[in-house]
Amino acid sequence: MTLDDAQHFVRDPDWTWYILGYFFFAGLTGGSYLLASMLRLFGKPEDEPAARIGYYVSFVALLPCPVLLTLDLGQPLRFWHMLVNTTPGNLGLNFKYWSPMSVGAWALTIFGAFATWSFVEAWTLDRERRFFPRLGKLVSFAGAPLGLFVAGYTGVLLSVSNQPVWSDTWTLGGLFLASGLSGSAALMGWLVRFRREASPSVGALALGERWFQILELALIVAFVVTLFPTGALERAFGPPWFALWAAALIGLFSGLLSGSTRASISPDGTVAVRAVHAASTLPTTLVLAGIIALRAAIIFSAQ
């Protein structure tokens, strides 16, 4: 430690695999909800099948979130203490806007209701039944900002601490959000290939994915720049963590350069659709693995 380095004498919270899993799925559930809502609200009617894929992804990625968070607690049966104050003489709800964990617990709970509603709606509409037709767009519109929050607040949660690396930067919220969105776009772009009627949305998803990856790259640069004066660079990027950063960058560039959701889909027939699907499985896997690696590098290097 040099004289100007940030001083840290904090103990590690031992946030490990469950938290890594949660951060990954939070990025996907929130990210895909936003993308689905954008396709539904600002796209063409032909984008509705892809939007429903997004709502399916969002719901499936949501399911492990509370489970992982609960399992990580020392006293899992007290998970509800996040929302309810059980202090004798002070019973009521807990909400501390200055504690991202408190805000996040509420955001995940409320977002969960939106994601579940949109999932049930997509499921029902896919079976050609009616489902509160006036509410669909309204729910999508209100749920989208919550999805954005769920995908990004995990980074703020890490920064609002006194841990080295995490509290030496303010970029993590944006970084986790951008990477969650790029992973969601990659995954949805890949899944679209299993649903022919969703193919008109492939181009938009591919373009979106690249844009999110450019944002992610810019935020990684900002992360490095903010760590530099605090002396935490070596800790974040030194061995063995550089291997995880390498995996994160491979995922990023494989998406950025090749486009895991290539827009060159043939509109006429299953054979062309399958061929493109096969070609994009590897980049999609690399993008998703990169998202896990990015979070792992940040979570583990600081502890």
């Binding site: 904090v10 103990r11 590690d12 919270p13 946030w15 607690l73 007290r78 996040m82 104050n85 841990q163």
Partner: peptide, 12 residues
């Protein structure tokens, strides 16, 4: 009341 989330550990 504590449920073992360990947020305080990362903060102290």
């Amino acid at each position: 009341v504590c449920n073992g989330c360990r947020n305080c550990i990362s903060a102290c």
